[in-house]
Design a protein around this nucleic acid. Structure first.
Lengths: 139, 139
DNA sequence: CGAAGTGTTCTATCGTGATAGAACACTAAA
DNA sequence: TTTAGTGTTCTATCACGATAGAACACTTCG
């Protein structure tokens, strides 16, 4: 499915859900009118408490990204796309910055930091490529 | 001084202290026989509860990086250098990886991620340079 | 109608990081 | 010896994220 939880992320579970919904909207994976998984369903899939999903969906609703259709579910609003596209880079940038600041303040040379990032980036690409070719055509 | 706390880091305060001590040892800023700031002094400097510093120093002592000289203070052990040098890259790598994974799973192209990192890296360099030239020669 | 599915709102409990304040054993220096 | 500074070890309390379980209003479908 769309979402996955990483417990060692440094981010709260509800925050990871919020961000992933936003990213999905920004990238077109989730479009206006689409319905997100129900509270109970997503909670089951992520092996997480329903209240944690409620918290995430509540935040998203308050931000105007989701809207409730009572008795039916939550769907992505029209405004969501612009909102999420605008926010996505900022959200990622903030995390990137924190890590780089720590690396820099640990007296790592800029070149060493760049090398470290490059290593992990290529490793990530390899993993993604391997996954694509693993079982059945995905495209 | 050596240490600084970032509240929006995603890392617990005690963990930030632990990491910064390790990084300082790995980079030679802190050498075997050097004494770390006293619990109460560091707590005051960081505007943090003494128990939080105790927690950090306890972890470091249990890992063999610091040793207590009762009534005097805590100093860096001989083994610390090897231990911290070996650990430093791994600690940073883990955080880098988490961020890159999130960026990648947000459907950002590798090139876009690289660009984002590069932007923040140069910004970091500019800031460091600005600070150096700000007040009195540092070199 | 009734059953099953939505979101929503409660209360209670738990773990953890952090704070607050106190006490203890020890050592160095006046 | 006294004083002031070490680390160490308690107990309590708080905030917050997460869990657990329940109830409510609503809509869809048989």
């Amino acid at each position: 499915m769309f979402f996955s939880i990483n417990p060692t992320n440094g981010l709260a579970i509800f925050d990871q859900i919020v961000r992933q919904v936003k990213f999905a909207v920004a990238s077109g994976t989730l479009m206006p009118g689409d319905m997100v998984p129900s509270v109970r369903e997503l909670a089951k899939e992520l092996a997480v408490n329903p209240n944690t999903v409620v918290r995430a969906y509540r935040d998203l609703t308050n931000e105007g990204i989701l809207e409730a259709v009572r008795g039916t579910g939550l769907n992505v609003t029209e405004d969501a796309v612009a909102h999420c596209e605008k926010e996505r880079l900022g959200l990622l940038r903030e995390r990137v910055r924190h890590v780089l600041v720590e690396a820099h303040s640990s007296r790592l040379e800029t070149s060493e930091i760049r090398e470290l990032v490059e290593e992990e980036l290529t490793r990530l690409e390899r993993a993604a490529k391997g996954k694509r070719g693993k079982k059945g055509a995905d495209s």
